[in-house]
Design a protein around this nucleic acid. Structure first.
Lengths: 341, 341
DNA sequence: TATGATTCTGGAAGCGTTTGCAGACGAGGA
DNA sequence: TCCTCGTCTGCAAACGCTTCCAGAATCATA
C-alpha cells in the first residue's frame, strides 16, 4: 500500500506537489502533473480518503435514510439517488430505518452524526423538530423526498393534486359512485401520503357536487395483497359495489383488479380502476394511473444537497419542489355501464 | 463541533484516557470512564471517523456491489445485509452496478479501492479474475452472494438442486409433459443462474427417463411481464401446451399464471405451475414454489466478512456455502388431468 | 533594467484520533 | 522489606494527507 510519499519520490517532487497534481487544485506545470500521474498509476496509488477527509472535513459520502427498500417506490428512489451520486463523485451510505424506534434513535444519534456523511437525504421520513435540529446543527445539508416537511427542502409530487387528478378522470368519464381504497390513516406512512390522497379524492368529489359518503373510503395495506383483500371485500357485496375505484397506489389498484377478475367482474366494463405511480406492472394490467418518477425525485434531492455543498449558504428558491405527475390512460378505466331502467 | 481535547479537559483527563474510555480499549478505572462518558455526552461529542480510521486503518464500512435494486431478490439481500451490518456496527456503502461497463470499471478502480471500505460483498456479480486479484490485493475480505465463484467464498442456494427439486415435484404428481420457462441463457445474469436452473430441470427429466425435448425450454425476461408474454405464447397454442410448467423464478411463474387465467386455462386443473423464490406475492397466487431467503444469504455474507476482519487469517471451511431451499406447496400444482382416451 | 504579476514548487504545520511507552500507585507473594 | 505484577494514566509520536506560506523562476510591462 503505497503512500503519497512514494509517489513523490518516484516522480521527483514533493508531497505537496503530488497532492496538487492529483487533486487538480493549485498550480502545477503540465509536465509535472503528467509525471506525477504516471508515478501514481504505476504504483497503484490512490489517496486515502480518511486522511483527506480529516484535513478537508469532507467525506464525499451522502447518507440516505429510507424506511423500506423492497418496494417499487423506494427502490426507484434509491436507484435514482445512487446514480446521481455516483455521477457526481459521491458515495452512498444506506440506512434502512425500519419501524423500530430504537434503531431509529441509533442511526440518528450515532451513525449519522459520526462525521461520516456530508449530507443527508431522508426519504419519506417524518423527522421530528428535534431531529431536524440535530441535523441542522451539524451544518450538513438535508433534503427530503416525499412531501413538505417543516424546516427542510423536499421533493415530490403533490399528493393532493395527484389524487384529485385521478378522481377527476373518473368523474369525467361519468362515474358518480367512486370508492377510494387508500392506506390506513392511522397506520400513516410518514409524510401523510395517505391522508393527502384521501383529501384529493374528497376535494374532487366535493367540487363535482357529490356528497362524500363515509363508507366510500376503505383502508388497505399498501401492496398488492392489501388491495386484493379489500377488493374482494368491497366487490363481493353487490349492494356495495361502486362503478369505479380510485386506489391510492398502483399496487393496491392491481390487487383490486385481481380481486375483480376472480369475482368475474370485468374491468373496465363493470368497474373502472385507477391508481397512482405508473408501476412497471401497470402496463401489464392495463392500469390507468397517475405517473410519478421517484428516481427523478431522488436525483433532484441529490442535486440540491450537492449544490449546497458546493456553494454553502446558497438556499433554494422553494421549500418544497413539486415534481410533475401526469395521467397515463390505459384500459382499466371507461365510462360506467349505462344503468338499465 | 467539539473535539476530544474538550472532552478531556472537561473530564480532567488526557486525550489518551478519553480515547480509551470511549472505545473501551485498555485500562480505565470505572470512575474515570463514567466521568468521561458524561463529559462527552454533555458536549455532544462524537469521534471523528476519519481521524480514527486514519490511525486504525479501519473504516467500519462495507461496500456492497449489486446489479439491480428494484427486484425482490436483490432488495431482500440489501435488507438482510443492511440489518446485519448495522447490528454489528458497520455502515453500508451501496454501489449499484448497472450493465454499463464504464460504470463498472469506475467503481472497481476508483471507488472501492479508495480505502473507503473494509470489505466487499458482491451480489450476483461475476468478478473477473483480474478484479478478484485487485480486491484480494487490497487485503480486504470479499464475499459473494449467488453462486460458486472462483477464489472467493460465496453464499447461496444450490440452483441446480432447487430446479431439480421443483421439477421432481411435478414429476411426482404424475406430470410427464413439463416445460421450463427460464432466463435467457445468452443474456445470462451473472453467476449462471439460468443455465444452472435449466440443468437441474434436465437432470430431473433425465432421471425420470423422460427425453429432453429442445422446445420444452423457453426463455423469458426474468420478471412478471416476461413470464406473461411467454405464457401467452406457449399456452395460446393448444398443440404445444404442456400439463405443467416449471418457471425459473416466481415472478416468471406469476406471469405465466396471469397468462393462463386470461386464456381460460385453469391452474392447477389444466396446468400446474411451480416457481422458485417464495416471493411475497406467491401466496396471493397460490403459487407452489421453492423457497429461498436472500436476506439470510446477505446476513451470512456479512458474518463471514466481519469474521475475517475480526480475526484476520481465518478462513471459512467451505468455499461455497449452500443455504437451504425448501418446497412450499400451495395450490398451483396438482396431478395432471387424466387424459380422455 | 527594474518592477510587479503570475506560475510553479517545497517546507512544515496542522487535521483529530489511537497507541506504544513509561511512570505511578497499590496489592500480594517471597 | 523488597520485588513483581496488574492497573491506571499521560506524553508524544504516528496515521497520510492538504494547504498556508515563502521563495524561486518566468514573463510581461513600465
Amino acid at each position: 500500500m503505497s503512500g503519497i510519499e512514494d509517489v513523490a519520490s518516484l516522480a521527483g517532487v514533493s508531497k505537496a506537489t503530488v497532492s496538487r497534481a492529483l487533486s487538480g487544485r493549485g498550480y502545477v506545470s503540465a509536465e509535472t502533473r503528467l509525471r506525477v500521474s504516471e508515478a501514481a498509476a504505476s504504483l497503484g496509488y490512490v489517496v486515502s480518503s480518511s486522511a483527506s477527509s480529516l484535513v478537508t472535513g469532507r467525506t464525499n459520502n451522502v447518507g440516505v435514510i429510507i424506511p423500506v427498500i423492497n418496494q417499487w417506490f423506494f427502490g426507484s428512489i434509491i436507484e435514482g439517488v445512487e446514480r446521481a451520486l455516483l455521477e457526481r463523485g459521491y458515495d452512498l451510505m444506506l440506512y434502512n430505518l425500519t419501524k423500530s424506534h430504537e434503531e431509529r434513535t441509533r442511526v440518528f444519534e450515532y451513525f449519522l452524526v459520526r462525521k461520516r456523511v456530508d449530507a443527508v437525504i431522508a426519504v419519506t421520513l417524518e423527522i421530528t423538530p428535534d431531529e431536524t435540529a440535530t441535523l441542522l446543527a451539524l451544518g450538513k445539508p438535508i433534503a427530503g423526498i416525499g412531501g413538505p416537511l417543516e424546516g427542510i427542502p423536499t421533493f415530490g409530487i403533490d399528493d393532493v393534486a395527484a389524487a384529485r387528478l385521478a378522481t377527476e378522470h373518473l368523474l369525467l368519464l361519468g362515474h358518480r359512485d367512486i370508492m377510494h381504497v387508500g392506506g390506513d390513516i392511522d397506520e400513516q406512512m410518514d409524510f401523510h401520503v395517505h391522508s393527502k390522497r384521501l383529501m384529493g379524492y374528497m376535494d374532487a368529489l366535493t367540487a363535482a357536487g357529490i356528497p362524500y359518503d363515509h363508507d366510500s373510503y376503505v383502508a388497505a395495506r399498501f401492496d398488492i395483497p392489501g388491495g386484493y383483500r379489500v377488493g374482494k371485500q368491497i366487490l363481493g357485496d353487490p349492494r356495495r359495489r361502486p362503478t369505479a375505484i380510485f386506489a391510492a397506489s398502483d399496487e393496491v389498484a392491481m390487487g383490486v383488479i385481481l380481486a375483480a377478475r376472480e369475482l368475474g367482474i370485468s374491468v373496465p366494463d363493470d368497474l373502472s380502476v385507477i391508481g397512482i405511480d405508473d408501476h412497471p406492472l401497470a402496463e401489464l394490467f392495463g392500469l390507468t394511473t397517475i405517473e410519478q418518477r421517484p428516481d427523478l425525485q431522488g436525483e433532484q434531492a441529490v442535486d440540491w444537497v450537492i449544490g449546497q455543498l458546493d456553494q454553502p449558504g446558497w438556499r433554494p428558491p422553494a421549500q418544497h419542489t413539486v415534481l410533475p405527475a401526469r395521467l397515463v390512460m390505459r384500459s382499466s378505466t371507461a365510462p360506467p355501464r349505462p344503468r338499465l331502467p
